[in-house]
């Protein structure tokens, strides 16, 4: 499955619990809205590490990579080469 599709599915089902906030799109701010708190970010990292056999280093876990779905897709594509 394409990274973008996998990520959307994960964010919608796991992070948002199937409830989309008003105005949710690829640029929706996941951090300022409180959508991606520490627990949910940790779960997302673990999921992608296991799913794509990658490791998130201390320099990967920074706000700009997690700010929105689009930012995450770009970061993951870059990470996976």
């Amino acid at each position: 499955m394409e990274i973008q599709e996998t990520l959307w599915n994960y964010i919608i089902n796991e992070t948002l619990g199937g409830r989309l906030p008003e105005g949710f799109d690829g640029d929706y701010d996941l951090i300022d809205s409180g959508t991606l708190d520490s627990f949910k970010m940790m779960n997302l990292i673990i999921y992608f590490e296991q799913h794509y056999q990658v490791e998130f280093g201390i320099n990967d876990i920074v706000p700009k990579h997690f700010k929105s779905v689009n930012a995450l897709v770009a970061f993951l594509r870059n990470k996976l080469g």
Binding site: I31, S38, I45, D60, I61, P63
Partner: peptide
């Protein structure tokens, strides 16, 4: 400072 704490937790779990 968020999300540095998450990065630290990741290091601890590794």
């Amino acid at each position: 400072r968020f999300p540095k704490g998450v990065a630290l937790l990741r290091e601890i779990r590794k």
